[in-house]
């Protein structure tokens, strides 16, 4: 097992949104700080640094995690996906478009974390009811929207994802 000295910096290499990326981090550096300040991926936001608000949510090897409760060294050699990877060509994906259509954001600070949670969950092609969506989203705090638009956008994106599947099967 790799031994890390508390006072020294270590080279961290990971795959960020499909591309190799790397930088230096002390063992205590949070993944949220590493992404934002070492790699310049500032789309991931920090709202509490104690795991409650969900703004920092990213996907680590596909699974949603709180980047503020994860150390940068834990991401070494792994795949990290952030909000910047959702629209790689600058074209919003279906989920993002649904957010815009339903006014599911105002200040946009909570939005990247919510998008990443939903992105991971939509991969399972769920057929949710509103209650399930609300349960899922209860891990995120939004202070601007009152959540109504977010729930509506998530329901619509889930419908679109399933419709896409049906289209492909036919």
């Amino acid at each position: 097992m790799k031994r890390l000295g508390a006072g020294s910096r270590h080279r961290i290499g990971l795959t960020l949104n499909g591309r190799e990326a790397g930088g230096w981090a002390e063992p205590r550096m949070l993944l949220s700080d590493f992404l934002r300040h070492a790699l310049g991926a500032t789309g991931t936001h920090v709202g509490c640094e104690h795991g409650v608000c969900g703004a920092c949510t990213v996907r680590l090897d596909g699974a949603p995690v709180r980047a503020c409760l994860t150390l940068a060294v834990q991401a070494d050699g792994r795949r990290v996906d952030t909000v910047e990877g959702l629209a790689p060509e600058g074209e919003l994906n279906d989920l993002q478009k649904a957010f815009r259509r339903h006014h599911a954001l105002q200040c946009g600070f909570c939005t990247p974390g919510i998008l990443m949670s939903l992105d991971a969950w939509l991969d399972g092609r769920p057929a949710p009811d509103e209650g399930e969506i609300r349960e899922l989203l209860s891990g995120h705090l939004c202070r601007c929207t009152g959540y109504g638009g977010i729930v509506a956008a998530a329901l619509e994106a889930a419908r679109a994802a399933r419709a896409g599947d049906v289209g492909e099967d036919d």
């Binding site: 934002r36 789309g43 815009r100 946009g108």
Partner: peptide
Amino acid sequence: ERVEDAALLMGRGRYID
């Protein structure tokens, strides 16, 4: 729809940090 949203949804907002 809001002109602000596309950048914010792509994680390209410019906040103080």
